[in-house]
C-alpha cells in the first residue's frame, strides 16, 4: 500500500496545479484569435511596467537584503516584533495601502511636501509608480531572502572570517553563492507581485499607466476583447524570470547536495 502512496501524491499535486492554472484556460479559449490586436497605448504600458518594475526591484534588493541578513543572523530584543511588523504592508488591503501612501506622499502629506520641495512629485509620476511597487513587493523579498540566508550554515561564514575575509567579503564569497537560488526565488516572487500590482498603483500612480491599470482602462474603454491580447503580452514579459529560476533550480539539483556536504 505504501508503494501506491507516491502515485497518489503525484495525482493530487497535478490536480492542484491544474486547478491553479484553470483561469489561464479561460484566457486561451476566450482570446479573439482571429482579430488579435493590441489596443492603442498597450505597448507604452508594457514599457512602463518593465522599466519601472526593474527599477523597483533594484531598490527592493538593495535595501531588502541587509534587512533580511539582520533578521537571519542577528539575535536582538524585539526581533519577533520586527518580523510581524514586516508583514503589515502585506496585510493592508492594496486599496487601503494606496490611500495611506497617498496621504503620506501626496501633495498634502508631510513627506510629500518635503519631496515636492526637492522638485519630486509623488503623485501620478514615475517615482510614485516605483514607490507603490516597492511597497507592494518589498516584504515578499525580505521574507524569502531571510529564509535563504538562514539556510547558509553560520559556521561557514565564521570560517570565512578566520580565513581572512571581512564580513562584507564573506557575504560576497560565501553567503551569496550559497543562498543565491533562494534570493533569486525571493526576487522572482517580488517581481511577479510588483508587476501585477493593481490596487496600490491605481490610487497612487494611475499615470504612468502600467499593464494592470491599462487592463482596467481597456476593459472600460474598449470592452472585454481588448483585455485578452494585453494579458498575453503581460504573461510574455512577466513569466520568463520565474520560469528561468525554476529551470536553474531544477538543473542544479543533480550537481551536488550542498547541504548534505560536510558542513
Amino acid at each position: 500500500m505504501s508503494r501506491l502512496r507516491p502515485q497518489w501524491t503525484l495525482v493530487l499535486a497535478l490536480a492542484w496545479l491544474a486547478f491553479l492554472l484553470l483561469p489561464v484556460t479561460a484566457l486561451v479559449t476566450h482570446t479573439p484569435w482571429r482579430h488579435f490586436a493590441l489596443a492603442s497605448g498597450d505597448l507604452a504600458a508594457l514599457r512602463v511596467s518593465l522599466v519601472y518594475t526593474a527599477v523597483a526591484m533594484v531598490i527592493v534588493v538593495a535595501f531588502g537584503t541587509p534587512l533580511a541578513w539582520v533578521l537571519a543572523r542577528r539575535r536582538f530584543r524585539g526581533r519577533a516584533w520586527v518580523e510581524g511588523l514586516l508583514l503589515v504592508p502585506l496585510l493592508t488591503p492594496p486599496l487601503a495601502l494606496g490611500i495611506l501612501l497617498t496621504t503620506l506622499y501626496g501633495p498634502y502629506g508631510w513627506l510629500g511636501g518635503w519631496f515636492s520641495g526637492l522638485g519630486v512629485s509623488l503623485t501620478n509620476t514615475a517615482p510614485a509608480f516605483v514607490l507603490a511597487q516597492v511597497y507592494a513587493s518589498a516584504p515578499y523579498y525580505v521574507v524569502g531572502a531571510r529564509a535563504a540566508i538562514e539556510g547558509v550554515t553560520p559556521e561557514l561564514e565564521q570560517l570565512g572570517r578566520t580565513l581572512g575575509d571581512s564580513p562584507w567579503r564573506v557575504f560576497r564569497r560565501v553567503t551569496l553563492p550559497l543562498s543565491w537560488l533562494g534570493l533569486a526565488a525571493a526576487l522572482s516572487i517580488a517581481w511577479v507581485r510588483a508587476l501585477g500590482e493593481f490596487g496600490v498603483v491605481l490610487v497612487m500612480a494611475y499615470y504612468p499607466q502600467g499593464i494592470p491599470v491599462k487592463l482596467w482602462v481597456n476593459l472600460q474603454d474598449f470592452g472585454l476583447p481588448s483585455v485578452y491580447p494585453l494579458l498575453w503580452l503581460f504573461f510574455l514579459v512577466g513569466l520568463p524570470l520565474p520560469l528561468l529560476l525554476g529551470l536553474l533550480a531544477w538543473r542544479r539539483r543533480p550537481q551536488a547536495r550542498p547541504d548534505a556536504a560536510g558542513v
Partner: peptide
C-alpha cells in the same frame, strides 16, 4: 582583533569545507 586579522588556521569540527 577581528577574526580576519588573526593569523590563525582554524579547523572546525567536521572540517566545514565550503560546499560550493
Amino acid at each position: 582583533l577581528p577574526p580576519e586579522r588573526r593569523r590563525i588556521g582554524f579547523l572546525p569540527q567536521d572540517s566545514a569545507l565550503f560546499p560550493h
